[in-house]
Design a protein around this nucleic acid. Structure first.
Lengths: 202, 202
DNA sequence: TGTTCTAGAGAACGTTGTTCTACAGAGTTC
DNA sequence: GAACTCTGTAGAACAACGTTCTCTAGAACA
């Protein structure tokens, strides 16, 4: 007896995009970027693979949307550069939140900075990374206004971003082995780095 | 009239490995990592695709060998941490050489740190990156011995590596747009960063 | 010349990203 | 309710990829 054809399931149009994004994020977090294929994501979302092309133009479009979402989450995690009484405390807090996010969502962090190669149009990192940089600029600016730091905020913010992005990237790439072999804790080293930067910016 | 079968060309055994490596490097430098396929590399090398499997076990093995070679080149570029009269000069010189290498061979730099995901065995970066770190450790150690810097060399070297790797990575990812928009030069910012680090390590 | 080693040629397989066609679910209009 | 429109699903097809396998033949050696 031939089994009846499988009933077709149809997701409401407004939900296909978010279903695909949620699914892509789940697959990414669970199995890494190499497992994020169009079919795997569509299957995870319970929609047809063509949905990726209908909604995001192609696979890269999906990854870009995913990275964009992650950048938003990072910016939320880092907080704001609004004026506070203790700008250096805010600075440290924001930088730590940056690292915490990356360690909690390593696959997303990798996707954000190296997952999508787009030569024709600006990469998602170029478009959205500046929001995080702006928080750094604002935070440093407050400290400068209060005379705590003596530096030009934009360039200093870039220097700080260089350092924290590098720290997190090397840690995610398991490149703190020598450090650990000498008995140093990565989190403590990260804090030490922040203090070095602050001292260098006075 | 059927054309005669193409004459078979056979590369000497000792040369297949290096021919594949040279070819892979050429394809990588010219077209980026996504163009480095087994067939493309074999074709570029004038050998059969099976050569990749005969010599490097699989594609990843080839990429690992390529990254290993690049790490060697980077270490050569950075120079040594031998004692010199002007350790901070040596430090700056080595850090600049690091950036110069990455900007000259962006695709290789990307391959070195993010091109091969190996979960079971240590990544090429983990195995070979420490040679570069050791140069930093030695350089900083000389400065410490001479009383110029006051810091623990291993942790400080990791901090410096964080910063320069981050700087170079963000630059390669075109994430210096805000900086440039404010009229800052990336090379000058890199030097500024080195000075911030040195000041913070005194 | 015969034997051994091994690289080249080519095919095959499963998977991937992408495109295309046909079908059908859902909503709207008459 | 029937017809029409919009659009998501199912499935096929294609080229390319990484990989494995088989057969042939080039190279070296005895």
């Amino acid at each position: 007896m031939t089994p009846p054809p499988a009933a077709r399931h149809r997701t409401a149009s407004e939900q296909v995009g978010s279903a695909l994004l949620d699914a892509a994020q789940a697959v990414l977090d669970r199995e890494g970027l190499s497992a994020v294929s169009v079919r795997a994501v569509a299957s995870e979302a319970g929609v047809a693979p063509m949905g990726v092309y209908n909604r995001f133009q192609n696979k890269d479009g999906l990854l870009i949307a995913l990275a964009t979402r992650a950048f938003g989450a990072l910016k939320d995690a880092v907080g704001t550069g609004d004026p506070v009484e203790d700008p250096l405390g805010r600075f440290r807090e924001g930088c730590r939140a940056y690292r915490t996010f990356a360690l909690r969502y390593p696959q997303q962090y990798r996707l954000m900075f190296t997952g999508v190669e787009s030569l024709a149009s600006p990469s998602p990192a170029a478009e959205h990374g500046s929001a995080t940089l702006q928080v750094l600029v604002d935070t440093i600016d407050v400290a400068v206004q209060q005379g705590i730091l003596r530096t030009e905020p934009v360039q200093a913010a870039q220097v700080v971003w260089n350092a924290i992005h590098g720290a997190v990237s090397l840690e995610l790439a398991n490149l703190h082995v020598t450090l650990k072999r000498h008995g140093f804790d990565p989190a403590e080293t990260y804090d030490r780095m922040l203090e070095v930067l602050i001292d260098g910016l006075r």
